[in-house]
Amino acid sequence: MKIALIKYNAGNIQSVAYALERLGADFVITEHPEEITKADKVIFPGVGQAHTTMQFLKDRKLDEVIRSLRQPVLGICLGMQLLCRYSEEGNTGCLGIFDETVKKFEADSQHKVPHMGWNQVEFMANGLGSFVQQPSFYFVHSYYIPVNSHTLARCEYILPFSAIMKKDNFLAVQFHPEKSAAAGEALLHYFLNSFNVRA
């Protein structure tokens, strides 16, 4: 099984690659549409700013490539947010897989922004709750996706938000599985071995 890790200006590609290496996955880091399209599964990482990142993807026609994928896809952090319809970060039109709006956290006296550190997630009744024993993951983000009908697991910071979402062949996580110790590895393992939805 070949995994394509989409290469673009995301900050965490190397970390995701090392995590895949530790799991013994067969993967390639690539920006070539053909290589991405023919892979068995695709990982769409992401650390950065929504607007500049979408522009980068559009310039390389990677936006069309990602939209057209039929094999299992995992979006991570900004990768998850860019799979939504629109982001308040830089008023950015995104890929529209999930018909959701990405909103900015408003800091208050009890909560700092970004939401940075380890937080627990709670699986919804329809979730994949059994794949991880201690669902605590590492988050770093200032924007969030509200809980919606695609939410598989939610997390709470200032308000409840989507930690994991799924729609058809797209799985998306707000946290960084590549930096979330055993729980993160369990999630990546789930995606590599058990998430086999094709559209």
Partner: peptide, 8 residues
């Protein structure tokens, strides 16, 4: 370190 360690 990055290769081996799964925390930030």
């Amino acid at each position: 370190v990055a290769r081996q360690i799964n925390i930030p």
